[in-house]
Amino acid sequence: MTETTTLLAREGAALAIAIEDDATPFVRQIAQALRRAARTGHAVEVLGGAAGAVAVRSHDTPQAATITLGEGTVEVASGVRVVPDATVVVDVHARFASVQEVEGDGVLAAAALSALQPPLPHWREAAASFWNETREIAGIPDVLVVDAVGPDGIEHGRFGVGATEYLLAGPADLLAGIFTGADDLPAALAAGVQVKGTLSQLSVMTAASWKVRFDV
């Protein structure tokens, strides 16, 4: 297991989130969502003292994983190799939305589902964090330009300084999802996000999207 310990902002406690070696994208995506939840205190808030094994299955692919909750620890492993206490079936393209009735321990399942769906930060905060996290990726443009469409119209943002720019424009909530890893950039293009830059830059931005979504 590869372990990361995330300090909880509000609780002052630590939650260790571990994934197996050579983890699948699904395991990584789950772990990244839980890390986001842990960073804001959301995870501790919803998980409380929950303990047990929760099977998580994708509704449209064979992807499956098991979240094992313990005292201050969360382990995520591929497949379902134990008899789980609860099983949830989720849409990984819709931020782990539950798509069918849970099986087993409903309270545990609800806690796990909530932990997988931490509230998104404001798009501007998410964009700044995204930009910081992806600086080391080869070929990443110097400047991220954002046109976020919110309830009050278009808000503009610029992050970074330099000669090369990349623009993302679209609904503020969807952009926040891309920047946090809750949503996938290539999929978001089909959902209305628009970009301005070269094909090579799109390729690099995809790597950046995967960095925050899967930690790869």
Binding site: I137, A138, G139, T198, L199, S200, S203, V204, A207
Partner: peptide, 15 residues
Amino acid sequence: EIVLGDAFPDWRGNL
């Protein structure tokens, strides 16, 4: 599908 996820070398661009 177009393979994405890396920086292109200078000889590759917009096709």
